[in-house]
Design a protein around this nucleic acid. Structure first.
Length: 458
RNA sequence: GGCGCGGUAGCCAAGUGGUAAGGCCGAGGUCUGCAAAACCUCUAUGCGCCGGUUCAAUUCCGGCCCGCGCCUCCA
């Protein structure tokens, strides 16, 4: 069954290209815009990366693990990274390394497969400069008075196709425009001239005829895609917010530079909302993975929660959502353990994969999963179940409560006392101690030969 | 103002021109000193509102109301 995916450019459901099975060199090229490493990524960011991870897994299942090349970049130089570097008083490279490490740890905890290549903007300055020089030679870019280089959108007739920018009335506040050096409000920076007051010591020598400085944001993706995946790629993805201007600008740069179609297929995942609105620190609804883990939720439950909504619809994330996810996951673990190796029904969980192949319908896939599990007749096969788990990226062996909070000594004392009371059948005392533990925020789970302590949720 | 998306049970959320998946919560039950877990059963005569098309609409069309996102560097 082919994978059908919504294409942001044509706005239609289209089949993904299948690599030529007769040509071993032919692989499906997949680029996913990655994070800017200047702060911890929040769960909204991770929604996009988790959705893309499901896509990656689906592509591997469908085409074969060696027939997919997945590239995701790290933006390690821009206003925000430089700003953070100045704020913390550490070199840019040190700052971006720190946040890259956390990003990787979070991705691992969320069971996201590592991309095959994870290029950085600072690692590809030469490639970016090369492209800018080509664009200048071809008349698609010009040098501004301060030595910056801008892309001239009027030189690219196809500009705006992705975002339908021409049909918009730009809400223009001219203040930003006036302080710039561009000829047209829509022109964007390919190369930004060095400004000592803003940029600290971050600069590279620029394209011929331009000042020293650093690349603009959009060019990095164009350059890294060209280097690692080629001039035309099969699939380019990201969050909806990247549609304009980022992806629009990438198309303009790449197509003017290379003279070829940039991406055959575009896919954008929608935003995550928290308690019905966008995340922001001031609203107190801004969550990182670490925040949720600190509240006692497991990363796998967060992943599950992020898959509970259709990727192309805004998903309203609440703590109840993660709680529901945690419970659902526990149920899946129990069912997996009960599956017999010898199965009566093979490929029982194929509908789960089918739902994903139909425009990455993750909530329908999860629904199908439980529908099959709840069926009374027939014993489904574990192999098929595991395949579905792989596609969704749900690792049922992952710890249920990660990074368990330290148990306070006083709580341990109470627990020991209660266990002793229980062993001596003094149930009244045991119950009283259970209440004390609950008051302290802990729950005691009795086992046959011992107990476990868990912090109460929320 | 422009572009786009959405309004389905207490919460989250699929879906279909023929009468509403699934998860959570809740209720009842089995089991267990208690709790937890597990298992069983139940939980939307209705899918924002008003019209229209149709034998039949939550699903198509029109209008209205409400919410959300984007509109130059935010996944």
């Amino acid at each position: 069954m082919p994978i059908r995916l919504h294409d942001s450019l044509s706005r239609e459901l289209r089949e993904l290209r299948r690599p030529d099975p007769l040509n071993p060199q032919d692989v499906f090229s997949f680029y996913n815009c990655g994070p800017t490493v200047y702060a911890p990524a929040h769960i909204g960011n991770f929604r996009t990366f988790v959705v893309n991870d499901v896509l990656r897994r689906l592509l591997e299942l469908e085409f074969g693990p060696d027939k997919v090349k997945h590239v995701r970049n790290l933006t390690d130089v821009d206003d925000r990274t430089i700003g953070q570097s100045k704020k913390e008083g550490h070199p840019l490279g040190e700052i971006t390394k720190k946040w890259t490490n956390l990003f990787h740890a979070d991705c691992d905890a969320l069971n996201c497969l590592r991309p095959h290549v994870e290029p950085t903007a600072t690692g590809h300055i030469r490639e970016q400069v090369d492209m800018i020089e080509v664009l200048m030679r071809k008349g698609n870019a010009y040098r501004a008075a301060d030595g910056s280089v801008y892309f001239k959108i009027s030189s690219f007739p196809g500009y705006g196709a992705l975002s339908r920018i021409k049909e918009r009335e730009l809400k223009v506040t001219n203040s930003a425009f006036d302080s710039d050096h561009k000829n047209d409000i829509g022109d964007f920076a390919l190369w930004k001239a060095f400004k000592p007051e803003d940029d600290g010591d971050v600069k590279w020598s620029g394209p011929d005829g331009a000042a020293a400085g650093r690349p603009g944001w959009h060019i990095e993706c164009s350059a890294m895609i060209k280097k690692h995946l080629g001039e035309t790629i099969d699939l380019h993805t990201g969050g909806v917010d990247l549609l304009f201007p980022h992806h629009e600008n990438e198309i303009a740069q790449s197509q003017c530079c290379n003279g070829t179609t940039f991406a055959r297929h575009w896919y954008h995942s929608e935003h995550l909302l928290v308690e019905g609105t966008t995340m922001s620190k001031s609203k107190g609804n801004y969550y990182t993975l670490g925040d949720l883990v600190a509240k006692g939720y497991s990363p796998m439950a967060v992943r599950y929660a992020l898959l509970m909504g259709h990727p192309r619809k805004q998903l309203n994330f609440t703590l109840d959502t993660v709680h529901a996810a945690e419970k659902a996951l526990a149920s899946l673990r129990a069912h997996r353990a009960a599956l017999a190796p010898a199965a009566a029904v093979h490929e029982a969980f194929a509908p789960v994969i089918a739902a994903l192949q139909d425009d990455l319908n993750t909530p329908a896939a999860l629904g199908a999963l439980f529908t099959i599990i709840n069926r009374k007749e027939g014993q489904p096969d574990a192999t098929s179940f595991d395949r579905a788990m792989f596609a969704l990226g749900l690792d049922l062996t992952a710890p249920t409560t990660s990074a368990k909070a330290e148990t306070p000594g006083a709580v341990t004392v109470l627990a020991e006392k209660r266990w002793a009371a229980k062993q001596s059948k003094d149930f009244a005392a045991a119950d009283a101690l259970r209440k004390e533990l609950a008051a302290a925020g802990w729950s005691m789970l009795d086992g046959k030969d011992g107990y476990k302590l868990e912090p109460l949720k929320k």
